[in-house]
């Protein structure tokens, strides 16, 4: 059985490690230290926590001021609030002013499930992707989260990281293979060139499972992990498009403006590649557990397998 790990726990452990060596590392919270799994950080470095209260806009602005004066703040807040309520602060104070702020969106996508649309972030990739000077990540497993955090702890660049709530299976054997650098995608598995499935973060394991199912049916897929949505690895996408003419994207996000849109925009000028986008339709999200909702919208591994069979017919 594969190991699983909550990405929030990994980020906390890595942040403690970074803070052990750099007293400028700060966690900025909006009454979110518990939901962000940051209590061990608070215990280890109580002087490196800045609590802003339930004020996500202010948490981003204050973090920008802190960064401007030499601090390295990591702002932890539910992704829905961090990227929607605070989006102007992200655009102006972080990206436009070029502040060294890392925005950690916790419980992203549909993680909060039955808590409702107020707590879902299914538009965050679309809106953050359109802001210049902002890197975007969704770590897919424990090792990638480790590699990403080690990079973020020393990078000067503004970045948005979206993570989910549930424990994710370990997909990579080590940190080096999981994360190399921004804009460098990974080929997670490669059974052949009938189809390529492109995913990131929580949907990567689903894509991988679909590739295994397809292989058993004699359909040979490769699974591409973008690693960073911005910068986007255009070169790897071109290589994939050279090899296969069917690309399927899978994301925990609206069909509009997210990972699938990014891949389609990147490949459309070639004119030789079909891109199918799997994600949340443009409608109010049905209530249910995350697994039930994924199943309902055809985003679980079996549904993805069926769709790909259909598209290859």
């Amino acid at each position: 059985m594969t190991d699983t790990k909550k990405i929030g726990d990994v980020l906390c452990t890595e942040l403690i490690e970074a803070a052990n060596h750099d007293r400028n590392i700060l966690a900025v919270t909006s009454d979110s230290r518990g939901s962000a799994a940051l209590n061990p950080f608070v215990d280890a470095h109580p002087d490196q926590l800045v609590e802003i209260g339930i004020a996500e806009q202010n948490s981003v602005t204050v973090a920008s001021g802190l960064a401007h004066s030499g601090k390295r703040p990591f702002v932890f807040a539910p992704a829905a609030f961090l990227t929607m309520r605070s989006i102007e602060q992200v655009k102006v104070d972080v990206a436009y002013s070029n502040s060294n702020v890392k925005l950690i969106g916790i419980s992203g996508g549909n993680s909060y499930s039955v808590l409702g649309a107020t707590h879902h972030s299914l538009q965050d990739l679309a809106i953050t992707r359109a802001i210049p000077n902002l890197e975007i990540y969704m770590p897919a497993d424990e090792h990638q989260a480790q590699g990403l955090m080690r990079y973020l702890a020393t990078s000067p660049n503004p970045a948005y990281v979206r993570i989910g709530k549930v424990a994710l299976p370990t997909l990579y054997p080590n940190v080096t293979q999981a994360f190399t650098k921004p804009g460098k995608a990974n080929i997670l598995s490669n059974y052949g060139q009938d189809v390529a499935i492109v995913a990131m973060g929580e949907t990567l394991a689903i894509a991988n499972e679909a590739a295994i199912q397809l292989n058993q049916l004699g359909i040979h897929a490769q699974v591409i992990d973008l690693v960073s949505l911005k910068p986007l690895d255009q070169a790897t996408l071109n290589q994939v498009a050279d090899q296969t003419h069917l690309i399927v994207t899978l994301e925990e996000h609206s069909l509009y403006g997210g990972l699938g849109s990014a891949v389609a925009e990147a490949l459309a000028p070639r004119g030789d590649t079909k891109v199918h986008i799997i994600g949340f339709p443009d409608e109010p999200v049905i209530a249910g557990t995350q697994a039930e909702v994924f199943n309902y919208y055809g985003m679980d591994a079996t549904s993805v397998t069926e769709k790909i069979k259909h598209w290859l017919r």
Binding site: L26, Q57, N58, S64, G65, L66, A67, S69, G70, K71
Partner: peptide, 14 residues
Amino acid sequence: LGLSVGMALAAKLD
């Protein structure tokens, strides 16, 4: 004001 709070807080921390 929020940016200034961040800068002033950084002074206190440092």
